[in-house]
Design a protein around this nucleic acid. Sequence first.
DNA 1: TGTCATATTCACATATTTGCGAATAGCGCT
DNA 2: AGCGCTATTCGCAAATATGTGAATATGACA
Lengths: 114, 114
Amino acid sequence: MAKRKMRATATMDAVTTLYRRYYEGRRERVWTLDEAGATDSVAQKLTGLRLRAGMTQRQLAHLVGTTPSAICRLESADYEGHSLAMLNRIAAALDQRVELHFVPVSRGKRLKPS
Amino acid sequence: MAKRKMRATATMDAVTTLYRRYYEGRRERVWTLDEAGATDSVAQKLTGLRLRAGMTQRQLAHLVGTTPSAICRLESADYEGHSLAMLNRIAAALDQRVELHFVPVSRGKRLKPS
DNA sequence: TGTCATATTCACATATTTGCGAATAGCGCT
DNA sequence: AGCGCTATTCGCAAATATGTGAATATGACA
């Protein structure tokens, strides 16, 4: 524990910077925090969840019990091979619970989106 | 198409029987159909979804592009190794969409659920 | 510019899921 | 009992996800 000291001003707010970059880059407005982001991809959900928890990929990886590259892989946009086991591990590390819903697609009639 | 004829009274309602067995066995009352069953395991969700669609494991397997044993494995209660890819395949076959939600476990305060 | 931390990508070994057939059990019906 | 259909379980090959470290960006700050 003695090694990992951190200069308060320099890197402490690195996550804050990343947070700002992420949401300013790909989003018009920052999420209202209660919004679940139902239309987002799994990768986007994971990134948002991690950033809002104020963690780096390394920190999350350590909590989950894996490496940063694995986390990065899960957060990469074109990746589709997620397992429920891994999602549960991540959710647990972030004090969350994964809820799975099957919603009818109802091709034919379309209700108003939101 | 000529081969698979079916005697109307005998096996046509096999699924109905299974449906009744399933919900009378493990459930007090049949679901109100709008209920998503948020507290159920993935396996239970899949079984319920298939039965409410009026399909056998074989039929669903054919639609999904796999074998009945694979479906059975996914529906078995103690199985935990689901992949999102497979869940999406099943959902698509049943005209549904998989929605993934991370909900805070909120140890401490508990907001009203809905 | 240089340094530091983060994130991304690559490659490979390992672990896990899937695909599949065959055998077994359960239930309804004649 | 026997038949027919469903569901379950087993084993193994093939496909896929994960674990891992190293190398390579990217951005922030001095």
